[in-house]
């Protein structure tokens, strides 16, 4: 910033006021949360029997979600970045659906697909006796469903932006396609991968609708931090506030990761 020039802004007083209002809309709730936070009793609230397991479950499932997104999403992003034409266009649109879909609807869809009588769920149960809904695996599945598209779109953008001639050079140097991808393609897309992973983590950490619909809300089993906050708000508001502040801190941490790579 070179400094605001007041003579230019004066004429736009209306815009200035609306901008300030927007900032307030975003900032005030956060201030309210921080002001009400039971700072002195923090350790006690974090010791609450529902808080610890919820935070732990959120961290573990988020880590799993990010890992799965990276393993499955990176190849898909690469395909999308290299493919042109109608099929790729439709595939990209399809991948984007969970971004715009209300998470609850996603949860219902997951339940119908992986439930006891679902398209995937029925054979899974009959062949392996596997039941996904209302288990910690369902939590991860729900989070992957909503987070993967963010990861894929971010990485695809990064891969599309890298110069393809690097891959050609790698091939003339003797690198087979997989080697060229691992040693040149991936490192060059690293900023996009980091940004995608951070976005996916943020999305997974905050996931509520699809989780509660598909995985339920069993303390110590499928109750993630956002669900625990919602429940605690009825019985133990201070614990809910403490948990909320913890999640705000995590979110800010992720934003910090994003800033370095993506938001500059």
């Amino acid at each position: 910033m070179i400094g605001l020039r007041t003579h230019r802004l004066r004429g736009n007083l209306v815009l200035l006021l609306l901008g300030a209002l927007a900032t307030a809309v975003i900032l005030l709730p956060l201030v309210g949360l921080l002001v009400r936070a039971p700072w002195s009793d923090w350790p006690r609230y974090l010791a609450d029997p529902i808080v610890r397991p919820a935070i732990w479950l959120s961290l573990v499932t988020t880590a799993a979600t990010v890992a799965i997104s990276m393993i499955l999403g990176t190849p898909l992003a690469w395909l999308l970045s290299r493919a042109d034409g109608r099929a790729a266009h439709w595939l990209r649109a399809l991948v984007t659906v969970p971004v715009v879909l209300p998470p609850v609807v996603g949860g219902v869809a997951l339940l119908l697909a992986y439930g006891r009588h679902g398209v995937v769920g029925a054979p899974l149960f009959e062949l392996f006796g596997l039941r996904l809904p209302f288990t910690p695996y369902a939590v991860v599945l729900a989070q992957v469903f909503v987070s993967l598209p963010f990861y894929v779109l971010s990485v695809e953008g990064a891969m599309r932006g890298t110069d393809r001639r690097y891959a050609l050079v790698a091939s003339t140097l003797g690198a087979r396609p997989l080697r060229a991808f691992l040693t040149v393609g991936l490192p060059l897309a690293a900023p996009g991968i980091a940004a995608g992973a951070a976005l996916a983590a943020a999305r997974a950490l905050g996931e509520f609708g699809a989780t509660i619909t598909f995985a339920g809300n069993f303390a110590g089993e499928t109750q993630t931090a956002p669900l625990a906050i919602y429940v605690a708000l009825q019985s133990n508001p201070d614990a809910a506030v403490a948990l909320s502040v913890a999640m705000l801190a995590l979110a800010v941490l992720i934003l910090g990761l994003l800033r370095g790579r993506w938001l500059r």
Partner: peptide
């Protein structure tokens, strides 16, 4: 394939 040919390319 290019990676099997013995070529060096400088652009």
């Amino acid at each position: 394939a290019p990676e099997v040919r013995r070529v060096g390319l400088l652009a």
